[in-house]
Nucleic acid binder design. Structure first.
Lengths: 242, 242
DNA sequence: CGTCGGGTTGAGGGTGATCAAAGTTTGTGG
DNA sequence: CCACAAACTTTGATCACCCTCAACCCGACG
């Protein structure tokens, strides 16, 4: 069931009834496989469908005229990488796979139709896009006001938290198919400096990183270093919903 | 008519029919005045209403545990500073006035009701929040990948563009009630360095700044310096709407 | 006239950038 | 399965952008 992860993702933040769930499951979705480093959407393009990650990792990024890339967010299975395209005509950034990816594409027409018929689905999606924005805000704080080590710590803890939230693996060990260059572009640093900061975390016993497997041996201390507060992830708000 | 600016703002990005407009005009709204540097909303609070700027400037910000403030966005008349509160229970950041402000407060209950009855209003608001997110993304790129001068240039051009878009004054001259400390917090810099960068722009004939009046004598050159591309503002998308 | 917030200036220091090169791993084709 | 290339990681040396600290100036306002 390709919509399983998506449903899980939406239900973390919204109370959907059985009919809502059925309607989402029935959405026509084209599933495709992509290799790593493949574009899922490009800046300037007019999208006609939304892209849901079923398996694998992707990131959103912008490249300045001077050729520098800035990664805006990392995405895991269950997440919609371009939901904004539903109401914003043209893509203002790129979406690229980080690993091999299985992705589902849902036409804007069918998605718009269901949002107009089922207000709760519309609100779940709207809320999802608001959480997206909340993560961008924290990303701004991270890049603007935290030194490099703390910045990297925050990125790691955020990803660990989000992976755990979706019920994949434990929070302290996970796959992260990002190169040090990717991490640098995510943090607004250079790859050389990221390498040095990684070594510092290793020395402090806060990070083990072989291949693309991350292990966080002392999550509490890492969270402290990151001054991580998960408020901005707006977890489990469904219960208190109107 | 206190909803005039808001309507103008929404209609830039959405096609509202006469009934939609009337419904928005009829929204019960409590108007209040605030001095400069007053909180409009606080991190951790559960909001029950949305705050619309009728006159004046405000900003959104987060403060890290180490006491550093990062400004996330600047807001002008017509903008809703906490629309996300409609679907996200708790505020993940602060909203503060920058100048004297006249603000209108609309209860979540009436706002939710109208979004459920009028899909086009819901979509206009949803789209508004998506544009918000697009501005956060550009803010990330600005802080993460542009040197200080270019960063300041970008901030100035963005504000000039958004003020012009709303039909206030010309794009090259406008009021900006931010201190150099505020600008520093917006750009992820220190006030001392902001001061030096301002002087550099002055020397280059790109900026005049007396009191809180900004004059941009050579907007094209400033845009070039900022490598400013207004794509992310998603201007006038209403026409091509579904 | 004194205080206070904000702007300006100077000296010195450090975080992170740049440049360059050497390892190491990954992946691909023979 | 090996050979080779390409991509990624690591290390070193040097540099610069921006920070820190500190003082002084200026205008607004009581």
């Amino acid at each position: 069931m390709p919509t399983r992860a998506l449903l899980k993702r939406l239900q973390i933040n919204a109370a959907l009834d059985a009919d809502d769930v059925e309607t989402i499951k029935a959405l026509p979705m084209a599933v495709r496989d992509f290799p790593a480093h493949a574009p899922l959407a490009r800046e300037g393009a007019r999208s006609t469908q939304c892209c849901v990650l079923i398996e694998g990792f992707a990131c959103r990024s912008k490249t300045t005229f001077t050729g520098k890339r800035q990664i805006l967010s990392i995405h895991i299975a269950g997440e919609i990488v371009d939901l904004h395209g539903l109401h914003l005509q043209v893509m203002d950034h790129d979406v690229t796979t980080l690993s091999k990816v299985k992705a589902g594409f849902i036409g804007h027409d069918s998605l718009l139709a269901i949002t107009r018929e089922r207000p709760m689905v519309a609100e779940a999606l709207w809320r999802y896009s608001l959480r997206d924005a909340a993560m961008f805000r924290e990303w701004i704080v991270n890049i603007g006001r935290r030194p490099a080590i703390n910045r990297l710590a925050h990125l790691l803890v955020e990803i660990a938290t989000r992976i755990e939230e979706m019920g994949f693996a434990g929070g302290a060990r996970f796959e992260l198919p990002m190169t040090q260059l990717d991490i640098a572009d995510a943090l607004g640093l250079t790859p050389v400096h990221v390498n040095r900061v990684i070594q510092e975390l290793r020395r402090d016993g806060l990070l083990e990183l072989h291949k693309h497997t991350v292990l966080l041996p002392d999550l509490p201390r890492l969270k402290q270093l990151a001054t991580f507060d998960d408020l901005y992830l707006h977890r489990s708000e469904a219960l208190s919903d109107v």
